[in-house]
Write a protein that binds this DNA or RNA. Structure first.
Lengths: 231, 231
DNA sequence: CGCATCATTGACTTCCGTCAAAGTGGGTGG
DNA sequence: CCACCCACTTTGACGGAAGTCAATGATGCG
């Protein structure tokens, strides 16, 4: 069972009030489609039905951050000001997404406390996603970041009791998520493979061989913190 | 006026509904006091009245992250599950904080849509704080991170039209916020001082000499992103 | 006045980013 | 069906930036 210790609390399943579900419409996307644009109007909230997506932030200097990955069941685009802070883009070859008109959801929330509670919950989820990434970004070494990431991608994924790893996103996406160069991501994966901690059947699909070790790697590196000067 | 481009949208002022304000009680803290504990019950939300505080995450391996700094007007501890993900600790010698019982606020939100809206807004603020830090953490060089940080600490601070910089927190706090070593933070500040971009009257107090340059430093470094493979 | 905490500086080493090049695989069109 | 192409992935060599270790300065509080 090995209770997972750190950043990997994911919120995949979500039971919505039917009053809210009824507002949804579905849309099909193909790989690389933009669901919504950064700085564009935030008219809808979304939920992945099948496939996968990513949230990106394009910075003024042209750099790209991948802020989070979205898997089936994940909801996103609800906790945002009038204008999207990120863009949402599909990753998987074909992705189905349920779309909720935000203003109607919000109107519903005014009268239905249960819906309001769910909206707050969605905000919490968004915070959690961000915090997951932050945790990973504070790890000083590439080995720790990549290890964390692999664990993150296996834990909490629906129907994944075993140790299989599926990476729907490219190495570039991973690199921009972990704030590393592609080369470093690739090298680190190779190293994990050579150390027989994971095995990869193909570039994007494999399994964990030694989960405990991976866990240790992800928390590895000597403490470099300056905790509690005042007890 | 040089519109600030990037990570520095802060949300200092906050007009709360009086129905919510009436729930508040005040408390005095001294430097280093813990306002609430990570993994402890989240019974209250808070607002800094005077002084300053930090949110910290202690990781299982013993490392500390400083997740964010809280200045007068900032609200925090509202957007959290039953249990605090962070701890909250005061930084300033004496800090006054308004305390809102969460369950009463939430109960109020069930009947008062305006309060509910404010709660969502607070979630947005939390997201914004996290995203500020994330933006900074993705900057590859220490110069960029420290420059961003200085700008972050001057922009949006109430009543700071000028270029004065006040750093209520220690170098260690800054280091744990930027995920750098203390030495690197110190060295980088020294370098900024030598290049006459900032001046420091004391370790924690100074002013910006060349804001434009600081801005450039904070966005410096060649793009290292892998944007839009599929345009 | 003295100690403890915080801050700075220096020397050395390691890790990662950059540049460059080769390898892989899947999809499309001939 | 095959071949080509393009996007993606991997690997290698090199240099620079930041972490670590160690020591010295500053500052503030008792």
């Amino acid at each position: 069972m090995t209770a997972v210790s750190c950043p990997t609390v994911i919120e995949r399943p979500r039971d919505l009030p039917t009053s809210m579900q009824q507002l949804a419409s579905r849309a099909q996307y193909r790989k690389g489609d933009t669901i919504y644009y950064q700085d564009g109007p935030a008219e809808y909230g979304y939920q992945i039905v099948t496939g996968a997506a990513r949230e990106c932030a394009l910075q003024p200097d042209g750099r790209r951050q991948v802020v989070g990955f979205l898997m089936p069941g994940d909801m996103f685009g609800f906790c945002t000001p009038q204008v999207h802070r990120f863009s949402g883009e599909t990753i998987a070859e074909t992705t189905t997404i349920a779309r909720y008109p935000r203003h109607r959801v919000e109107r519903l929330a005014e009268s239905d406390p249960e819906v309001a509670r769910h909206l707050l919950q969605l905000a919490n989820d968004a915070v959690e996603r961000l915090q997951n990434r932050m945790t990973v970004l504070t790890r000083p070494t590439a080995l720790e970041r990549v290890s964390s990431f692999i664990l993150y991608m296996t834990d909490g994924v629906a129907g994944n009791a075993n140790n299989s790893v599926v990476l729907p996103m490219s190495r570039y996406d991973i690199a921009d998520y972990l704030a590393l160069s592609v080369e470093t991501v690739s090298r680190t994966l190779t190293e994990l493979r050579q150390r027989r901690v994971v095995e990869l059947f193909s570039a994007r699909c494999g399994s964990i061989i030694d989960r405990a070790l991976l866990q240790r790697y992800s928390e590895n590196g000597e403490p470099r913190s300056h905790a509690s000067q005042w007890d």
